[in-house]
Nucleic acid binder design. Structure first.
Lengths: 187, 187
DNA sequence: GTCTATAGTACGATAGAC
DNA sequence: GTCTATCGTACTATAGAC
């Protein structure tokens, strides 16, 4: 409809994914990503605060999904179980993208800079989860710890899922495995 | 005496600390840090791979300390206890710097870029710890999880310590508190 | 020690959609 | 006309190359 192609941000994401997958993150310039998407460098920065952010367009949605799921958890649930359930819910949505999610993860893992950004996104999520736990009455130290352990479990389960392409198991199964292992090691 | 002042790397660290504390990380240029330390910009990059690294000069030593401590842990110790003990050991050395350590942490926390770097240093440590645990016979999933939970506990305990200046408690006490809380929440 | 490429910013200009 | 997406240019700083 518009004279300018729609979904400029999505085009930038697709272009970045393709070029970085082919050449590597630091062998691709912002100008190239923009041109590939039919835009100029200047416009790239209208959509993303910096070069890395284009790979984390969905991070805010993911965090929102987890936080809302946690808010809806029954008051009777133990904090760690509520957090694990919320992460399982959002992780299931994420992993339903299948190979697209795995490919993106491979791109992120391939670059130091992108892994740094991923880690701070997870920290942001952790802070948000701890906040919800405090609202539910948890003490500050407990809330922080449970949120961090949950995040660690998610990260580990997600890596297991990523490394098992074509598996018959869904993401929830990986989370359950991880939860059981946590109990073994920390009980 | 050397022709050039000794401890160039330490002078750069001190200069960076002071200038960033006064003005903020992104209001200080590498050239300014170098000049303040009596060097040129070019020399800064001889000592540090990038601008952020100057604040993480001790990270490799810290990781080494933790890893060696874990290697010396008795075979009978549970993985999580061995990891917590190793982190308590190295954390005690770190926190013995007192306010200098707190000040550095305040500087790191003040900048997004520096926090990103800190997170990936912790991840590096986590990977190293998981490796030692595997050498001790732990399964891959367990090793990764225990290392990550240990790192989360350390991070939390260290923040508690940082936020309690002038406390009578040493770092080991904060780690014990954290370990107990972990047991409560995950048992 | 000098030179260059790229990231990212500042401010502005243009032009299509309505 | 207004609104908003796009682009132009010049600039600083990081970082790597030569």
């Amino acid at each position: 409809m518009a004279r300018w192609g729609p979904d400029a941000d999505n085009r930038l994401y697709q272009s970045a994914m393709q070029l970085i997958f082919e050449r590597g993150y630091d062998q691709v310039t912002v100008a190239e990503i923009a041109e590939h998407a039919g835009l100029k460098k200047r416009s790239f920065f209208r959509y993303f605060a910096d070069k890395r952010e284009v790979l984390f367009a969905g991070a805010a949605d993911f965090e929102h999904e987890v936080v809302e799921a946690l808010k809806k958890a029954p008051d009777t649930a133990k904090p760690i179980d509520a957090v694990m359930a919320a992460l399982t819910h959002a992780g299931t949505i994420l992993t339903n993208y299948g190979d697209a999610a795995r490919q993106r993860q491979r791109v992120v893992t391939s670059s130091m800079e992108l892994r740094e950004r991923e880690l701070i996104k997870m920290e942001s999520l952790t802070v948000a989860l701890a906040g919800v736990l405090r609202d539910r009455g948890a003490e500050d130290l407990s809330a922080t710890l449970v949120a961090q352990v949950g995040a660690a479990a998610f990260t580990t389960a997600f890596r297991e899922w990523t490394d098992a392409p074509g598996t018959a198991q869904d993401f929830a199964w990986f989370m359950t495995q991880t939860r059981d292992r946590l109990r073994d090691e920390l009980g």
